[in-house]
Lab assay of single mutants.
Amino acid sequence: AVSDRLIGRKGVVMEAISPQNSALVKVDGETWRATSGTVLDVGEEVSVKAIEGVKLVVEKLE
């Protein structure tokens, strides 16, 4: 799938994300809905860990 190429890519949080709420991230110039197990604020850099349906699963870039 096209989205599989995004695993391992870096992105930027466009809307705050919490474990209860998905929000938008920008990866390679494209906007995607994403979820995370932690709270992520706007502007934080993230890494794509997986794809669940049409959502990216991201975590904060260390």
Score class of each variant (00 low, 15 high):
residue 1 A to P: 11
residue 2 V to K: 09
residue 3 S to L: 14
residue 3 S to H: 11
residue 3 S to F: 12
residue 3 S to R: 10
residue 3 S to M: 14
residue 4 D to Y: 07
residue 4 D to H: 14
residue 4 D to S: 13
residue 4 D to C: 15
residue 4 D to F: 08
residue 5 R to M: 08
residue 5 R to Y: 10
residue 5 R to G: 07
residue 5 R to L: 08
residue 5 R to P: 05
residue 6 L to M: 08
residue 6 L to E: 00
residue 6 L to A: 01
residue 6 L to N: 01
residue 6 L to I: 07
residue 6 L to W: 06
residue 7 I to N: 03
residue 7 I to Q: 02
residue 7 I to Y: 04
residue 8 G to Y: 03
residue 8 G to E: 01
residue 9 R to M: 14
residue 9 R to F: 07
residue 9 R to I: 05
residue 10 K to G: 04
residue 10 K to H: 10
residue 10 K to S: 07
residue 11 G to E: 03
residue 11 G to N: 00
residue 11 G to F: 03
residue 12 V to N: 02
residue 12 V to F: 09
residue 12 V to D: 02
residue 13 V to M: 09
residue 13 V to A: 03
residue 13 V to I: 07
residue 14 M to R: 01
residue 14 M to W: 06
residue 14 M to Q: 06
residue 15 E to Q: 12
residue 15 E to T: 10
residue 15 E to N: 06
residue 16 A to S: 10
residue 16 A to V: 14
residue 17 I to M: 14
residue 18 S to F: 09
residue 18 S to N: 09
residue 19 P to K: 10
residue 19 P to S: 11
residue 19 P to I: 09
residue 20 Q to A: 11
residue 20 Q to H: 12
residue 20 Q to D: 13
residue 20 Q to M: 11
residue 22 S to P: 09
residue 22 S to W: 13
residue 23 A to V: 14
residue 24 L to S: 06
residue 24 L to H: 05
residue 24 L to W: 13
residue 24 L to N: 05
residue 25 V to Y: 03
residue 25 V to G: 02
residue 26 K to W: 14
residue 26 K to V: 11
residue 27 V to A: 01
residue 28 D to S: 05
residue 29 G to L: 04
residue 29 G to I: 01
residue 32 W to F: 14
residue 32 W to Y: 15
residue 32 W to M: 03
residue 33 R to T: 13
residue 34 A to R: 00
residue 35 T to N: 06
residue 35 T to I: 14
residue 35 T to Q: 07
residue 35 T to Y: 10
residue 36 S to E: 05
residue 36 S to L: 05
residue 37 G to K: 13
residue 37 G to A: 14
residue 37 G to S: 14
residue 38 T to A: 10
residue 38 T to M: 10
residue 38 T to P: 04
residue 39 V to N: 11
residue 39 V to A: 12
residue 39 V to P: 13
residue 39 V to E: 10
residue 39 V to G: 08
residue 41 D to L: 15
residue 42 V to R: 06
residue 42 V to A: 07
residue 42 V to Q: 05
residue 42 V to L: 06
residue 43 G to N: 05
residue 43 G to F: 04
residue 44 E to S: 08
residue 44 E to L: 07
residue 44 E to Y: 06
residue 45 E to M: 13
residue 46 V to I: 11
residue 46 V to C: 04
residue 47 S to D: 04
residue 48 V to P: 01
residue 48 V to G: 01
residue 48 V to K: 00
residue 48 V to I: 10
residue 50 A to R: 09
residue 51 I to Q: 04
residue 52 E to M: 11
residue 52 E to F: 10
residue 52 E to R: 10
residue 52 E to W: 12
residue 52 E to C: 14
residue 52 E to D: 13
residue 52 E to N: 11
residue 53 G to H: 04
residue 54 V to G: 15
residue 54 V to R: 12
residue 54 V to F: 14
residue 55 K to P: 01
residue 56 L to Y: 03
residue 57 V to T: 04
residue 57 V to Y: 08
residue 58 V to E: 00
residue 58 V to L: 04
residue 58 V to P: 00
residue 59 E to H: 05
residue 59 E to G: 06
residue 59 E to M: 08
residue 61 L to G: 05
residue 61 L to F: 09
residue 61 L to R: 06
residue 62 E to Y: 13
residue 62 E to H: 12
residue 62 E to T: 12
residue 62 E to A: 12
residue 62 E to Q: 12
